[in-house]
Design a protein around this nucleic acid. Sequence first.
DNA 1: TCCATTATTGACTGATTGATCCATAATTAG
DNA 2: CTAATTATGGATCAATCAGTCAATAATGGA
Lengths: 214, 214
Amino acid sequence: MEGEGSKLLINQSIIVNPLIMARPREFDRELALERATRVFWAKGYASTSTEDLLVAMRIGRQSLYNAFGDKRALYLEALERYQRGTTSGHLQRLKGPSSPLAGIEALLLGLIAEDDGQRAMGCMGVGAASEFGTGDPALVELRAKVVPVLFSSLVERLHEGQARGEIDLAMNVEDAASFIQMTMTGLQLAARSGAGVDALHALAHFAVDRLKID
Amino acid sequence: MEGEGSKLLINQSIIVNPLIMARPREFDRELALERATRVFWAKGYASTSTEDLLVAMRIGRQSLYNAFGDKRALYLEALERYQRGTTSGHLQRLKGPSSPLAGIEALLLGLIAEDDGQRAMGCMGVGAASEFGTGDPALVELRAKVVPVLFSSLVERLHEGQARGEIDLAMNVEDAASFIQMTMTGLQLAARSGAGVDALHALAHFAVDRLKID
DNA sequence: TCCATTATTGACTGATTGATCCATAATTAG
DNA sequence: CTAATTATGGATCAATCAGTCAATAATGGA
Protein backbone atom coordinates (compact mmCIF):
# COMPACT_ATOMS: atom_id res chain seq x y z
CA MET A 1 0.00 0.00 0.00
CA GLU A 2 1.30 3.42 -0.86
CA GLY A 3 1.03 6.60 1.14
CA GLU A 4 0.31 4.75 4.34
CA GLY A 5 1.70 6.00 7.63
CA SER A 6 2.84 4.07 10.66
CA LYS A 7 0.39 1.90 12.59
CA LEU A 8 0.09 1.71 16.33
CA LEU A 9 -1.86 -1.15 17.83
CA ILE A 10 -3.69 0.22 20.82
CA ASN A 11 -6.40 -1.74 22.61
CA GLN A 12 -7.17 -3.92 19.62
CA SER A 13 -8.00 -0.97 17.37
CA ILE A 14 -5.72 0.21 14.68
CA ILE A 15 -4.74 3.84 15.04
CA VAL A 16 -3.41 5.07 11.75
CA ASN A 17 -0.97 7.93 11.84
CA PRO A 18 -1.24 9.08 8.25
CA LEU A 19 1.26 11.35 6.59
CA ILE A 20 -1.65 13.50 5.55
CA MET A 21 -4.27 14.09 8.17
CA ALA A 22 -7.94 13.36 7.54
CA ARG A 23 -11.18 14.34 9.18
CA PRO A 24 -11.19 13.16 12.81
CA ARG A 25 -13.86 10.83 14.20
CA GLU A 26 -16.63 12.72 15.96
CA PHE A 27 -17.70 9.98 18.38
CA ASP A 28 -15.90 8.12 21.15
CA ARG A 29 -15.11 4.72 19.68
CA GLU A 30 -14.77 3.07 23.06
CA LEU A 31 -18.09 4.48 24.28
CA ALA A 32 -19.85 3.40 21.12
CA LEU A 33 -18.38 -0.09 21.51
CA GLU A 34 -19.58 -0.25 25.09
CA ARG A 35 -23.08 0.75 24.00
CA ALA A 36 -23.07 -1.88 21.28
CA THR A 37 -21.97 -4.44 23.86
CA ARG A 38 -25.02 -3.74 26.00
CA VAL A 39 -27.35 -4.42 23.07
CA PHE A 40 -25.66 -7.66 22.02
CA TRP A 41 -25.49 -8.72 25.65
CA ALA A 42 -29.19 -8.16 26.22
CA LYS A 43 -30.54 -9.48 22.94
CA GLY A 44 -27.92 -11.81 21.51
CA TYR A 45 -26.39 -11.57 18.05
CA ALA A 46 -29.17 -12.71 15.73
CA SER A 47 -31.91 -10.69 17.41
CA THR A 48 -29.90 -7.48 17.26
CA SER A 49 -30.40 -5.47 14.09
CA THR A 50 -27.89 -2.98 12.78
CA GLU A 51 -30.59 -0.37 13.31
CA ASP A 52 -30.73 -1.33 17.01
CA LEU A 53 -26.99 -0.82 17.16
CA LEU A 54 -27.01 2.56 15.43
CA VAL A 55 -29.64 3.90 17.82
CA ALA A 56 -27.85 2.60 20.91
CA MET A 57 -24.41 3.71 19.75
CA ARG A 58 -25.73 7.08 18.59
CA ILE A 59 -23.76 7.07 15.37
CA GLY A 60 -24.64 6.91 11.70
CA ARG A 61 -24.67 3.72 9.66
CA GLN A 62 -21.56 4.49 7.68
CA SER A 63 -19.69 5.39 10.84
CA LEU A 64 -20.36 1.91 12.18
CA TYR A 65 -19.03 0.27 9.05
CA ASN A 66 -16.04 2.63 8.91
CA ALA A 67 -15.04 2.13 12.51
CA PHE A 68 -15.92 -1.51 13.14
CA GLY A 69 -16.13 -3.30 9.80
CA ASP A 70 -19.50 -5.02 9.92
CA LYS A 71 -22.02 -6.41 12.38
CA ARG A 72 -20.07 -9.60 13.00
CA ALA A 73 -16.74 -7.83 13.51
CA LEU A 74 -18.43 -5.44 15.92
CA TYR A 75 -19.89 -8.37 17.82
CA LEU A 76 -16.54 -10.12 18.07
CA GLU A 77 -14.83 -6.97 19.28
CA ALA A 78 -17.62 -6.30 21.79
CA LEU A 79 -17.43 -9.84 23.13
CA GLU A 80 -13.66 -9.78 23.36
CA ARG A 81 -13.74 -6.51 25.25
CA TYR A 82 -16.46 -7.86 27.52
CA GLN A 83 -14.50 -11.02 28.26
CA ARG A 84 -11.37 -9.08 29.01
CA GLY A 85 -13.21 -6.89 31.50
CA THR A 86 -15.11 -9.63 33.29
CA THR A 87 -12.16 -12.04 33.44
CA SER A 88 -10.04 -9.33 34.99
CA GLY A 89 -12.74 -8.77 37.61
CA HIS A 90 -13.03 -12.48 38.30
CA LEU A 91 -9.30 -12.86 38.84
CA GLN A 92 -9.22 -9.86 41.15
CA ARG A 93 -11.99 -11.25 43.35
CA LEU A 94 -10.55 -14.76 43.30
CA LYS A 95 -7.13 -13.59 44.36
CA GLY A 96 -8.23 -10.80 46.69
CA PRO A 97 -8.94 -12.59 49.97
CA SER A 98 -6.08 -14.28 51.79
CA SER A 99 -8.18 -17.40 52.24
CA PRO A 100 -8.55 -19.40 49.01
CA LEU A 101 -12.08 -20.49 49.81
CA ALA A 102 -13.01 -16.90 50.57
CA GLY A 103 -11.59 -16.00 47.17
CA ILE A 104 -13.72 -18.60 45.46
CA GLU A 105 -16.74 -17.37 47.36
CA ALA A 106 -15.98 -13.79 46.33
CA LEU A 107 -15.65 -14.96 42.73
CA LEU A 108 -19.09 -16.56 42.75
CA LEU A 109 -20.81 -13.78 44.69
CA GLY A 110 -19.20 -11.26 42.38
CA LEU A 111 -21.20 -12.67 39.49
CA ILE A 112 -24.48 -11.71 41.11
CA ALA A 113 -25.49 -8.16 40.26
CA GLU A 114 -27.62 -6.36 42.80
CA ASP A 115 -29.53 -4.43 40.17
CA ASP A 116 -32.44 -6.43 38.79
CA GLY A 117 -32.05 -5.24 35.22
CA GLN A 118 -28.35 -5.95 35.13
CA ARG A 119 -28.71 -9.32 36.80
CA ALA A 120 -31.40 -10.42 34.35
CA MET A 121 -28.98 -9.89 31.48
CA GLY A 122 -26.85 -12.76 32.70
CA CYS A 123 -23.44 -13.08 31.09
CA MET A 124 -22.69 -12.17 27.50
CA GLY A 125 -20.12 -14.94 27.23
CA VAL A 126 -22.65 -17.53 28.35
CA GLY A 127 -25.14 -16.07 25.90
CA ALA A 128 -22.62 -16.33 23.09
CA ALA A 129 -21.79 -19.93 23.99
CA SER A 130 -25.47 -20.79 24.04
CA GLU A 131 -26.27 -19.00 20.78
CA PHE A 132 -23.36 -20.30 18.73
CA GLY A 133 -22.23 -23.42 20.55
CA THR A 134 -19.26 -24.93 18.75
CA GLY A 135 -20.47 -23.72 15.38
CA ASP A 136 -18.39 -20.57 15.06
CA PRO A 137 -14.61 -21.12 15.03
CA ALA A 138 -13.84 -17.51 15.92
CA LEU A 139 -15.96 -17.76 19.06
CA VAL A 140 -14.53 -21.16 19.97
CA GLU A 141 -11.07 -19.67 19.70
CA LEU A 142 -12.01 -16.66 21.79
CA ARG A 143 -13.42 -18.93 24.47
CA ALA A 144 -10.33 -21.11 24.34
CA LYS A 145 -8.24 -18.06 25.08
CA VAL A 146 -10.26 -16.92 28.09
CA VAL A 147 -11.39 -20.05 29.94
CA PRO A 148 -7.95 -21.52 30.73
CA VAL A 149 -6.80 -18.30 32.37
CA LEU A 150 -9.38 -18.50 35.11
CA PHE A 151 -9.00 -22.26 35.25
CA SER A 152 -5.31 -22.16 36.11
CA SER A 153 -5.88 -19.48 38.74
CA LEU A 154 -8.58 -21.66 40.26
CA VAL A 155 -6.25 -24.64 40.34
CA GLU A 156 -3.66 -22.49 42.03
CA ARG A 157 -6.00 -21.27 44.73
CA LEU A 158 -7.39 -24.76 45.28
CA HIS A 159 -3.90 -26.11 45.81
CA GLU A 160 -3.29 -23.30 48.22
CA GLY A 161 -6.50 -24.23 49.99
CA GLN A 162 -5.29 -27.79 50.37
CA ALA A 163 -1.97 -26.63 51.75
CA ARG A 164 -3.81 -24.48 54.28
CA GLY A 165 -6.08 -27.33 55.30
CA GLU A 166 -9.23 -25.63 54.03
CA ILE A 167 -9.78 -28.23 51.35
CA ASP A 168 -9.57 -32.01 51.48
CA LEU A 169 -6.27 -33.26 50.07
CA ALA A 170 -8.15 -36.11 48.43
CA MET A 171 -10.05 -33.71 46.21
CA ASN A 172 -8.88 -33.49 42.61
CA VAL A 173 -8.21 -29.81 42.06
CA GLU A 174 -8.66 -29.88 38.29
CA ASP A 175 -12.07 -31.43 38.70
CA ALA A 176 -12.88 -28.87 41.36
CA ALA A 177 -11.77 -26.01 39.12
CA SER A 178 -13.96 -27.28 36.29
CA PHE A 179 -16.79 -27.66 38.73
CA ILE A 180 -16.44 -24.04 39.84
CA GLN A 181 -16.44 -22.82 36.26
CA MET A 182 -19.55 -24.88 35.58
CA THR A 183 -21.12 -23.39 38.68
CA MET A 184 -20.35 -19.93 37.33
CA THR A 185 -22.20 -20.58 34.09
CA GLY A 186 -25.02 -22.20 36.05
CA LEU A 187 -25.34 -19.08 38.17
CA GLN A 188 -25.28 -16.80 35.13
CA LEU A 189 -27.98 -18.76 33.42
CA ALA A 190 -30.10 -18.88 36.55
CA ALA A 191 -29.75 -15.11 36.74
CA ARG A 192 -30.77 -14.74 33.12
CA SER A 193 -33.75 -16.96 33.86
CA GLY A 194 -34.91 -14.53 36.52
CA ALA A 195 -33.52 -15.89 39.78
CA GLY A 196 -33.38 -13.34 42.59
CA VAL A 197 -30.35 -12.17 44.54
CA ASP A 198 -31.15 -14.31 47.57
CA ALA A 199 -31.61 -17.51 45.59
CA LEU A 200 -28.35 -16.94 43.73
CA HIS A 201 -26.48 -16.14 46.92
CA ALA A 202 -27.80 -19.35 48.45
CA LEU A 203 -26.60 -21.30 45.42
CA ALA A 204 -23.15 -19.74 45.57
CA HIS A 205 -22.79 -20.42 49.28
CA PHE A 206 -24.01 -23.98 48.88
CA ALA A 207 -21.46 -24.61 46.15
CA VAL A 208 -18.59 -23.17 48.20
CA ASP A 209 -19.69 -25.17 51.24
CA ARG A 210 -19.36 -28.34 49.16
CA LEU A 211 -15.64 -27.63 48.85
CA LYS A 212 -15.03 -27.12 52.56
CA ILE A 213 -13.41 -29.81 54.61
CA ASP A 214 -15.73 -30.80 57.43
CA MET B 1 -69.06 -20.00 14.69
CA GLU B 2 -71.59 -21.95 12.64
CA GLY B 3 -71.26 -25.38 11.19
CA GLU B 4 -68.49 -26.33 13.59
CA GLY B 5 -68.34 -29.81 15.03
CA SER B 6 -67.22 -31.01 18.45
CA LYS B 7 -63.65 -30.37 19.61
CA LEU B 8 -61.41 -32.84 21.36
CA LEU B 9 -58.30 -31.59 23.08
CA ILE B 10 -55.60 -34.17 22.49
CA ASN B 11 -51.97 -33.56 23.22
CA GLN B 12 -52.36 -29.78 23.09
CA SER B 13 -53.60 -29.83 19.51
CA ILE B 14 -57.20 -29.26 18.60
CA ILE B 15 -58.75 -32.13 16.68
CA VAL B 16 -61.85 -30.88 14.96
CA ASN B 17 -64.55 -33.40 14.21
CA PRO B 18 -66.54 -31.47 11.63
CA LEU B 19 -70.06 -32.33 10.60
CA ILE B 20 -68.88 -32.25 7.03
CA MET B 21 -65.50 -33.81 6.38
CA ALA B 22 -62.74 -31.95 4.61
CA ARG B 23 -59.51 -32.89 2.90
CA PRO B 24 -57.28 -34.83 5.28
CA ARG B 25 -53.76 -33.70 6.18
CA GLU B 26 -51.12 -35.44 4.09
CA PHE B 27 -48.22 -35.23 6.55
CA ASP B 28 -47.70 -36.58 10.06
CA ARG B 29 -48.18 -33.59 12.33
CA GLU B 30 -46.22 -35.11 15.19
CA LEU B 31 -43.31 -36.03 12.94
CA ALA B 32 -43.25 -32.54 11.43
CA LEU B 33 -43.28 -31.04 14.93
CA GLU B 34 -40.37 -33.24 15.96
CA ARG B 35 -38.41 -32.13 12.91
CA ALA B 36 -39.14 -28.49 13.67
CA THR B 37 -37.98 -29.06 17.23
CA ARG B 38 -34.58 -30.25 16.03
CA VAL B 39 -34.07 -27.06 14.04
CA PHE B 40 -35.10 -24.71 16.84
CA TRP B 41 -33.04 -26.74 19.28
CA ALA B 42 -29.91 -26.52 17.14
CA LYS B 43 -30.21 -22.92 15.97
CA GLY B 44 -32.43 -21.12 18.44
CA TYR B 45 -35.55 -19.16 17.59
CA ALA B 46 -34.24 -16.01 15.94
CA SER B 47 -31.69 -17.76 13.75
CA THR B 48 -34.25 -20.19 12.40
CA SER B 49 -36.07 -19.00 9.30
CA THR B 50 -39.47 -20.28 8.24
CA GLU B 51 -37.70 -21.58 5.13
CA ASP B 52 -35.38 -23.64 7.36
CA LEU B 53 -38.45 -25.08 9.02
CA LEU B 54 -40.26 -25.93 5.79
CA VAL B 55 -37.25 -27.81 4.46
CA ALA B 56 -36.71 -29.73 7.70
CA MET B 57 -40.38 -30.48 8.22
CA ARG B 58 -40.85 -31.38 4.55
CA ILE B 59 -44.12 -29.59 4.21
CA GLY B 60 -45.32 -26.56 2.27
CA ARG B 61 -45.51 -23.09 3.70
CA GLN B 62 -49.27 -22.96 3.88
CA SER B 63 -49.34 -26.33 5.62
CA LEU B 64 -47.16 -24.96 8.37
CA TYR B 65 -49.42 -21.99 8.95
CA ASN B 66 -52.53 -24.13 8.74
CA ALA B 67 -51.32 -26.75 11.18
CA PHE B 68 -49.28 -24.69 13.65
CA GLY B 69 -50.39 -21.06 13.41
CA ASP B 70 -47.17 -19.17 12.92
CA LYS B 71 -43.47 -19.42 13.67
CA ARG B 72 -43.83 -18.40 17.29
CA ALA B 73 -46.73 -20.78 17.99
CA LEU B 74 -44.74 -23.59 16.39
CA TYR B 75 -41.77 -22.76 18.58
CA LEU B 76 -43.86 -22.73 21.74
CA GLU B 77 -45.46 -26.05 20.86
CA ALA B 78 -42.08 -27.55 19.99
CA LEU B 79 -40.56 -26.36 23.25
CA GLU B 80 -43.49 -27.59 25.30
CA ARG B 81 -43.31 -30.99 23.69
CA TYR B 82 -39.55 -31.08 24.21
CA GLN B 83 -39.87 -30.15 27.88
CA ARG B 84 -42.53 -32.76 28.46
CA GLY B 85 -40.32 -35.44 26.96
CA THR B 86 -37.11 -34.53 28.73
CA THR B 87 -38.74 -33.92 32.10
CA SER B 88 -40.36 -37.32 31.93
CA GLY B 89 -36.96 -38.86 31.21
CA HIS B 90 -35.35 -36.96 34.07
CA LEU B 91 -37.97 -38.13 36.55
CA GLN B 92 -37.61 -41.72 35.40
CA ARG B 93 -33.85 -41.70 35.90
CA LEU B 94 -34.08 -39.86 39.18
CA LYS B 95 -36.60 -42.29 40.60
CA GLY B 96 -35.23 -45.43 39.00
CA PRO B 97 -32.43 -46.54 41.34
CA SER B 98 -33.31 -47.58 44.86
CA SER B 99 -30.54 -45.40 46.23
CA PRO B 100 -31.42 -41.67 46.10
CA LEU B 101 -27.86 -40.60 45.38
CA ALA B 102 -27.68 -43.16 42.58
CA GLY B 103 -30.87 -41.63 41.23
CA ILE B 104 -29.35 -38.17 41.25
CA GLU B 105 -26.25 -39.52 39.58
CA ALA B 106 -28.37 -41.22 36.92
CA LEU B 107 -30.23 -37.93 36.41
CA LEU B 108 -27.02 -36.03 35.74
CA LEU B 109 -25.36 -38.72 33.65
CA GLY B 110 -28.55 -39.06 31.66
CA LEU B 111 -28.08 -35.52 30.39
CA ILE B 112 -24.85 -36.41 28.65
CA ALA B 113 -25.45 -37.74 25.15
CA GLU B 114 -22.87 -40.15 23.80
CA ASP B 115 -23.26 -38.93 20.25
CA ASP B 116 -21.11 -35.87 19.57
CA GLY B 117 -23.64 -34.11 17.39
CA GLN B 118 -26.47 -34.60 19.81
CA ARG B 119 -24.39 -33.61 22.82
CA ALA B 120 -23.21 -30.41 21.14
CA MET B 121 -26.82 -29.28 20.80
CA GLY B 122 -27.11 -28.95 24.56
CA CYS B 123 -30.63 -28.50 25.90
CA MET B 124 -33.38 -26.67 24.06
CA GLY B 125 -34.84 -25.41 27.33
CA VAL B 126 -31.52 -23.92 28.37
CA GLY B 127 -31.21 -22.38 24.92
CA ALA B 128 -34.66 -20.85 25.23
CA ALA B 129 -33.86 -19.46 28.68
CA SER B 130 -30.65 -17.97 27.38
CA GLU B 131 -32.21 -16.52 24.25
CA PHE B 132 -35.29 -14.97 25.86
CA GLY B 133 -34.38 -14.64 29.52
CA THR B 134 -37.31 -13.18 31.40
CA GLY B 135 -38.46 -11.16 28.41
CA ASP B 136 -41.15 -13.47 27.08
CA PRO B 137 -44.06 -14.11 29.47
CA ALA B 138 -45.17 -17.24 27.63
CA LEU B 139 -41.74 -18.81 28.06
CA VAL B 140 -41.49 -17.72 31.68
CA GLU B 141 -44.82 -19.38 32.31
CA LEU B 142 -43.78 -22.56 30.53
CA ARG B 143 -40.60 -22.70 32.60
CA ALA B 144 -42.56 -22.06 35.77
CA LYS B 145 -44.70 -25.10 34.96
CA VAL B 146 -41.77 -27.46 34.36
CA VAL B 147 -39.04 -26.54 36.85
CA PRO B 148 -41.00 -27.12 40.08
CA VAL B 149 -41.94 -30.66 39.05
CA LEU B 150 -38.35 -31.84 39.00
CA PHE B 151 -37.56 -29.69 42.02
CA SER B 152 -40.09 -31.38 44.27
CA SER B 153 -38.97 -34.82 43.15
CA LEU B 154 -35.42 -33.84 43.95
CA VAL B 155 -36.43 -32.65 47.39
CA GLU B 156 -38.21 -35.93 47.94
CA ARG B 157 -35.22 -38.04 46.97
CA LEU B 158 -32.87 -35.89 49.02
CA HIS B 159 -35.04 -36.36 52.09
CA GLU B 160 -35.00 -40.06 51.38
CA GLY B 161 -31.23 -39.88 51.13
CA GLN B 162 -31.06 -38.26 54.54
CA ALA B 163 -33.32 -40.92 56.04
CA ARG B 164 -31.07 -43.60 54.58
CA GLY B 165 -27.94 -41.95 55.91
CA GLU B 166 -26.53 -41.23 52.43
CA ILE B 167 -26.80 -37.49 52.90
CA ASP B 168 -25.88 -35.30 55.84
CA LEU B 169 -28.94 -34.36 57.89
CA ALA B 170 -27.52 -30.87 58.28
CA MET B 171 -27.82 -30.24 54.55
CA ASN B 172 -30.72 -28.05 53.45
CA VAL B 173 -32.56 -30.16 50.88
CA GLU B 174 -34.18 -27.23 49.08
CA ASP B 175 -30.78 -25.63 48.58
CA ALA B 176 -29.42 -28.96 47.43
CA ALA B 177 -32.27 -29.42 44.96
CA SER B 178 -31.67 -25.97 43.50
CA PHE B 179 -27.99 -26.76 43.35
CA ILE B 180 -28.66 -29.92 41.37
CA GLN B 181 -30.89 -28.07 38.93
CA MET B 182 -28.19 -25.43 38.50
CA THR B 183 -25.69 -28.23 37.91
CA MET B 184 -27.96 -29.61 35.22
CA THR B 185 -28.01 -26.32 33.32
CA GLY B 186 -24.27 -25.98 33.85
CA LEU B 187 -23.73 -29.40 32.31
CA GLN B 188 -26.01 -28.65 29.37
CA LEU B 189 -24.22 -25.43 28.64
CA ALA B 190 -20.81 -27.07 28.95
CA ALA B 191 -22.01 -29.67 26.46
CA ARG B 192 -23.21 -26.96 24.09
CA SER B 193 -19.81 -25.32 24.47
CA GLY B 194 -18.14 -28.46 23.21
CA ALA B 195 -17.17 -30.36 26.36
CA GLY B 196 -16.49 -34.05 25.77
CA VAL B 197 -18.20 -37.03 27.36
CA ASP B 198 -15.38 -37.69 29.80
CA ALA B 199 -15.19 -34.12 31.05
CA LEU B 200 -18.94 -33.99 31.56
CA HIS B 201 -18.98 -37.34 33.35
CA ALA B 202 -16.24 -36.08 35.64
CA LEU B 203 -18.28 -32.96 36.39
CA ALA B 204 -21.39 -34.99 37.13
CA HIS B 205 -19.55 -37.37 39.43
CA PHE B 206 -17.82 -34.53 41.21
CA ALA B 207 -21.15 -32.81 41.85
CA VAL B 208 -22.76 -35.99 43.19
CA ASP B 209 -19.72 -36.68 45.37
CA ARG B 210 -20.24 -33.25 46.98
CA LEU B 211 -23.58 -34.48 48.29
CA LYS B 212 -22.23 -37.66 49.84
CA ILE B 213 -21.73 -37.87 53.54
CA ASP B 214 -18.09 -38.71 54.24
C1' DT C 1 -4.98 27.91 -0.85
C1' DC C 2 -5.12 23.40 -2.50
C1' DC C 3 -4.52 18.38 -1.89
C1' DA C 4 -5.02 13.85 0.05
C1' DT C 5 -7.46 11.46 3.25
C1' DT C 6 -11.00 10.03 6.36
C1' DA C 7 -15.76 11.01 8.58
C1' DT C 8 -20.51 11.95 8.18
C1' DT C 9 -25.05 11.91 6.22
C1' DG C 10 -28.87 10.10 3.90
C1' DA C 11 -30.46 7.69 0.06
C1' DC C 12 -30.33 3.39 -1.86
C1' DT C 13 -29.83 -1.86 -2.96
C1' DG C 14 -30.71 -6.55 -3.46
C1' DA C 15 -31.80 -10.26 -0.50
C1' DT C 16 -34.39 -12.30 2.97
C1' DT C 17 -37.89 -12.07 6.38
C1' DG C 18 -42.61 -13.85 8.19
C1' DA C 19 -46.95 -14.10 6.51
C1' DT C 20 -51.04 -13.98 3.20
C1' DC C 21 -53.77 -14.71 -1.09
C1' DC C 22 -55.71 -17.58 -4.34
C1' DA C 23 -56.63 -21.35 -7.30
C1' DT C 24 -57.06 -26.10 -7.01
C1' DA C 25 -57.42 -30.74 -4.81
C1' DA C 26 -59.35 -34.01 -1.69
C1' DT C 27 -62.54 -35.52 1.50
C1' DT C 28 -67.49 -36.91 3.42
C1' DA C 29 -72.34 -35.83 4.30
C1' DG C 30 -76.46 -35.41 2.11
C1' DC D 1 -73.53 -35.63 -8.03
C1' DT D 2 -73.37 -31.46 -5.19
C1' DA D 3 -72.15 -28.78 -1.18
C1' DA D 4 -69.19 -27.72 2.53
C1' DT D 5 -64.83 -27.80 4.35
C1' DT D 6 -59.94 -28.18 4.87
C1' DA D 7 -55.22 -29.10 2.64
C1' DT D 8 -51.89 -28.03 -0.70
C1' DG D 9 -48.73 -25.39 -3.78
C1' DG D 10 -47.28 -21.34 -5.95
C1' DA D 11 -47.33 -16.60 -6.33
C1' DT D 12 -47.02 -12.67 -3.87
C1' DC D 13 -46.72 -9.15 -0.28
C1' DA D 14 -44.86 -5.38 2.64
C1' DA D 15 -41.31 -5.01 6.00
C1' DT D 16 -36.93 -5.55 7.45
C1' DC D 17 -32.35 -7.12 6.82
C1' DA D 18 -27.14 -6.10 6.33
C1' DG D 19 -24.45 -3.53 3.66
C1' DT D 20 -23.04 0.06 -0.15
C1' DC D 21 -22.89 4.44 -2.76
C1' DA D 22 -22.24 9.08 -3.44
C1' DA D 23 -22.14 13.78 -2.03
C1' DT D 24 -20.31 16.68 1.33
C1' DA D 25 -17.46 18.08 5.40
C1' DA D 26 -13.38 18.39 8.11
C1' DT D 27 -8.62 17.93 8.97
C1' DG D 28 -3.29 18.93 8.52
C1' DG D 29 0.52 19.03 5.34
C1' DA D 30 2.48 20.95 1.27
